[in-house]
Structures are given as C-alpha cells and as structure tokens.
Amino acid sequence: MILAVDTSLGTAVAIVADDGALRAEASTDDPMGHAEVIGDLLRDVVDGADGDTVTHVVAGMGPGPFTGLRIGIAAARTFALGRRIPVVPVPSHLAAALTAIDEDGVDGRFAIVTDARRREVAVTVFDGVDEMGIPRVVAETVLVPRAGLDDALSGTTGIEVSTLSAADLARVGARAIAAGRTLAGEEPLYLRHPDVSVPGAPKKVGL
C-alpha cells in the first residue's frame, strides 16, 4: 500500500493499494493550518486502511506556498523514516492532471494552473498519459503573471485547481514505482529564490 501526503494547496492524505484502489482518504481544503491538521489526518488514514503494511510514502513536492508545502514533505519523510520505507517525491500537479484525465475525462493537451501568490500562477502543460498511465508533461512547471495567463496558455485549456487528490498523487506514485521512474528531486518545487537581498552599507541614523 502507498501513503501519499500533499500540502501544496490544502492538506490531503490518502492510502491506496498497489493497484490504485482507494483504501482511505482524509483532507481539508483550508489553504492554511497544515501544521495543525496533518497529524490527525495521517492517523485517520493509517487507522482507516490498517496502514501497518504501507510500503512507500509519496510526497507531493509542490509547487505551492512554501511554508505549507514543507509541512507535508517533512511529515512524509519522517513517516517513512519511522517505518523504514522509501519516500517517492512526485510533483503535485501530476495528481491534478490525473484527476482531470481520469475523473473529468479531459482529452489531449491541457494545463494545470495553481495559485502561486504575488499575482502569479504556476502552470504545467500535459498531454494525455504515457504508457505507464502517468500524465505526460509537455512543458515543465513555470510561474507566470496571472494577468498574462491567457497569453502563456496560447489556446491550451487551463484547468485551475485549489485542491488536490492525495489518492491520485498516490496512484501516480504507484505507477512511477512500478516503472522504476523518478518524477521529482529531493528539493521542493520552490520556483522562487528566498526573498532576500544581500545588505548594502548600514543606513545612516543622522548625527
């Protein structure tokens, strides 16, 4: 069984069987409060799915607001450490793409769009699924100004989401594991450098 944890938007946790069948799912849509809810949601799905036999933990790597995003990744990593099982990092947009294809019947080329704050959105363009059933990325995730989204999409259907399915994240992870593929690195998809500048000379205080 595969546990997936994602805090890139709300807080979403799910356990699916190796064939993708849902065993347990718990989530909140609240874009804040990840630290408060993550423990109870994890315990709910572990209890609900008899989670003793979890073999992998899929961590949703964003993009998403950094502070919340890290909470899920941290919890996924320590859960895996506690069970001595591997962590499988998966870009969060892949979950939304799978939902769009499987649940909503979206066909052909489309883009997953999520809010990135500061009047920007994160955009990843997909086109169907590959031979393993993993949504095929045709343009890597980029940040674009919300005002310029239509230009950036240039005709591609944009699907803006504000929640993610952890079950679909787990399914993408299961397919990646089966295919022996790595979908993301260790580093969260921050897409921005820390917002700091190297200080110049001290400000004068006046004599």
Partner: peptide
C-alpha cells in the same frame, strides 16, 4: 520563527504517527 517551527511540527507528527508513539 513560524515557518521554521512548522517544519519541526510536521516532522514530529509524521514520526509519532508512523511509530504510534506519544508526542
């Protein structure tokens, strides 16, 4: 620092639930 604290809180909860130990 709130954002720094939250990393530890998330980690501690993940570990405690995985091990089924008190936190």
């Amino acid at each position: 620092l709130a954002g720094a604290l939250m990393v530890g809180v998330g980690a501690a909860k993940g570990l405690a639930v995985a091990l089924d130990k008190p936190l």
